[in-house]
Amino acid sequence: MSSFTEEQIERYSRHIILPEVGGKGQMKLLKAKVFLVGAGGLGSPAAFYLAAAGIGKIGIADSDCVDHSNLQRQILHSTKDVGRSKAISAKETLESLNPDVEVIPYTERLNSGNIMDIIKDYDVILDGADNFPTRYLVNDACVFLRKPLSHGSIFRFEGQVTTIVPFDGPCYRCLYETPPPPGLVPSCQEAGVLGVLPGVVGSIQATEVVKLILGKGQILKGKLLIYDSLNMDFKKVKIHKNPNCPICSDKATIKELIDYEEFCQAHVGS
């Protein structure tokens, strides 16, 4: 693809008139490949906006099925989708929004054996996982493959977002070296989550991904954005590369991917 169809010019006109995007930037978006970890609370808004923006190829991995308790925030899925694969439901929703987008669903659970092969051809990764084993797996795989990663996470009324550019800025392990002890951090399932919270956090992640692809603006590299929705407070905390980081420093000890044990039932629809 090297030129737009008339329909595309109309569809993306509000992008094309932005000097920071333009025809060139829109073409970059149409040629971009983004991989989303999770089609849940964070993955839903992120995938919606990325598909609407015309990201050419979107991979979306989720091994869960839609549950009634997901519908309060996981807006990719409808009541009719209850019991169906989230990844397949996501594909249908996104492709009906924008036929320019090719959506590749992955229904298997990501692990040390499959993740490298699955994500290697994508340009940017967006982490909307709901459990720590997957978050560490995704961080480590992105470090090994030097892929930029948008990290987002939510809990009750609080969200955190950062953008990881491996070796250039801090990674997830620079901040949180190892997963928290099993069972210590409750999941959304156990502790609840405000439905609209992931809408904000996932949309911020999508914004970061679009900027990474366009190469425009300032990204949240070396910054952790903390959103407190109850008090409507946004705070940015500077984070630094950890000279003792177990994976991205000179003293790295982790040389291969780790499958951490599941601590709790966190992955079920949180």
Binding site: G41, S153, I154, F155, L224, I226, S270
Partner: peptide, 10 residues
Amino acid sequence: LEVVTFVGGG
């Protein structure tokens, strides 16, 4: 000091 809390939901 900056203290940030683990948040893992998605």
